[in-house]
Structures are given as C-alpha cells and as structure tokens.
Amino acid sequence: MPLLFVGLATVDVVQRVARFPGIDEKVQSASVEVAAGGPAANAAVTAAALGAEVTLISAVGSHPLGELVRADLAAHGVTLIDADPRSPEPPPVSAVTVLAATGERTIVSRNAGNRAVAVPPGGLPDADLTLVDGHHPALAVAAARSARRLLVDAGSWRPVFTDVFPYAEVVACSGDFRHPACSPAAAGDDDPAPAGDDDTGTGGDDDAATAAAVAAPHVVITHGPEPVRWFSAPDATGRVPVPSVAAVDTAGAGDAFHGALAVALARGDLDLPAAIAFASRVAAIRVSHAGPRSWLAHLR
C-alpha cells in the first residue's frame, strides 16, 4: 500500500512550558525536543507508523539543518525525495511552545515562504493514494493531476487549492478553514453570524457552506474535540464523535488525523465515517502524549 505525501517539511523545535511568556519576557522550558515537522511530514510519519509504505516529497536542501529532517524521517520509516537538494537555504523552522497544563500550543513559523520548488527530475512516484497540503504549489498541482486518489489537507486557505480541489476525492478541512467563496463579501452579508453560531455546536451552517464551496466528492471538517462533520455528494452528511481524552499536547494532532485518514482510505475496506473514526482515534492518541514522536509507540 504505497502512499505519497507532498508538501511541507520543517525543523520543529518544541518546548514545554508551565505558562506562555508575555511580551519581552523570558521563561524556562521543562523540556525541548527537535524533530521534523510540517503537515505533510507529520502525516507521513503517522502513516508509516501505521504500517504504510510512505514516500514524502518536499524541499529540504543542503543546509546542515536539513540533516535533522532527513534523519528523523528515516528513523520513522519515511522515504524522502528532496525536490530541491542543492538549495543552501535552511529548511523552514517552527518554534512550537506547548502549555503543559492543557496541551495548547503556539507556533511561529515561516513555512516555505516564497521558495519556488519544481517537480523532481525523476517525476512523482506511483502511489495508491496521494496527500497534498498546499505548500510548494507547483508540487501540489503536479501531484494532484497525477494522483490515482487525492486527499487534500486544507488546514487554511491557500490560492493553489483552486487548482488542486478539482482533482480531490476527499478534502479534509479544519474548523478554521475559510473558503473565499464563503467570505461575507462574497455572500453579500454585511452582518454575518459568528462562526459556529447554530444549534449543532460545530459550525453546521458554516460547514455546509464550506463543503459546497470546496465541491469535492467528500469533504471532512474537524473541530478539535468536537464531532467531525462530513459531507458526501450529492447530499449525504453526518457527524463522527471524537474520543474524549485529556489533552497533553495538541501540536500536530491535525497532521496525525490526516495521516491516519490517508491510511484508512487507502485500505479501501472502510466507509468514510469509519475512516474518520479511525483517524480520530489516532489523533486522540497523539494529543494524549507529550512530544512530537513518543506517542507513536502507543499506536501498536
């Protein structure tokens, strides 16, 4: 079951603190860990831990920090194809601060910035299912066009999604995702209701509008600890409950969800609600354990 993940790989520096610092304040962290990060990379690591054969295409480059990314991915069973191996630029670095008491996090990251990355000379490998996260737009579009089956991680709106969504089988959005077609200006609404202001508790009206705007065969919308909404063309919809757990570390929870969803979809023996339930259980394990990688041992 070969899976292909296309998108961002970063160096994540994760520090755990008793409280977030204020402006111009310094606090001591209880721990610090360094790992590869980024939506596609974290999803790829999750899928590999679940037993899939995983390839990640990203831009890492020749900077010494890139070795941290390569080593971590290799240690977790992910084959990396570097689309920009000669670049002297450092890979993106994310500073992640996790609040020990609640697992909430803040992230400062440049992501891929304006770095232009082309398709590798050898092209894209064959895969049963491809996930793209919208970073490195040229790669995302090429992967979308060539995918047998395409899963899109739509954490936040990116202009490239206009060219990617038409190829998608499943688009997985966060509750914070806002399609431009759903903006107040596009809707002609000068006084829109607050997001989530309906009787479902999970942004039902907003979710339906998002699903209609995305217009993929299947749209999944996550809401943290609240039920996941799903929409399947032409008019099927439903909710999947999320396991109730004590959150210890929420960093990368969405990425874990997407990696597990990719595995479930590629297996082909689960319908969409069952695939969402599987991915939600994996994400629940992620948030139940501190650190970017220690939680993987609890998948077995």
Rank of each mutant, 00 (worst) to 15 (best):
L68Y: 00
G37L: 12
E104S: 12
A266H: 03
F5I: 12
R286Q: 05
A256P: 00
S31V: 09
I23C: 10
G201M: 13
G37R: 14
E33P: 03
V282F: 02
D198I: 07
W157H: 08
D249V: 00
T10Q: 10
A247G: 06
D24T: 13
P85E: 08
V13N: 07
A215W: 05
S58E: 04
G254W: 04
A181V: 09
A212T: 12
F257A: 07
A284P: 05
P21M: 04
D12V: 01
L124N: 01
T200D: 11
P2H: 06
V17E: 03
V17M: 12
A154V: 04
T46R: 08
P180R: 04
S109N: 10
R300Q: 14
P273V: 06
D163R: 10
A41G: 10
K26H: 10
G61E: 07
T222F: 01
G259H: 10
A168V: 00
C173G: 01
V17H: 14
V219D: 02
P21Q: 05
V160C: 15
S87D: 14
L50N: 01
R145C: 07
I57D: 11
S62H: 13
A140W: 09
G51Q: 05
R229Q: 08
A212M: 12
D191Y: 15
R148M: 06
D126N: 06
L3V: 08
S156A: 08
A127C: 04
D82K: 02
R19T: 06
R158P: 13
H63Q: 14
V228Q: 12
V214D: 03
V45T: 04
P92C: 14
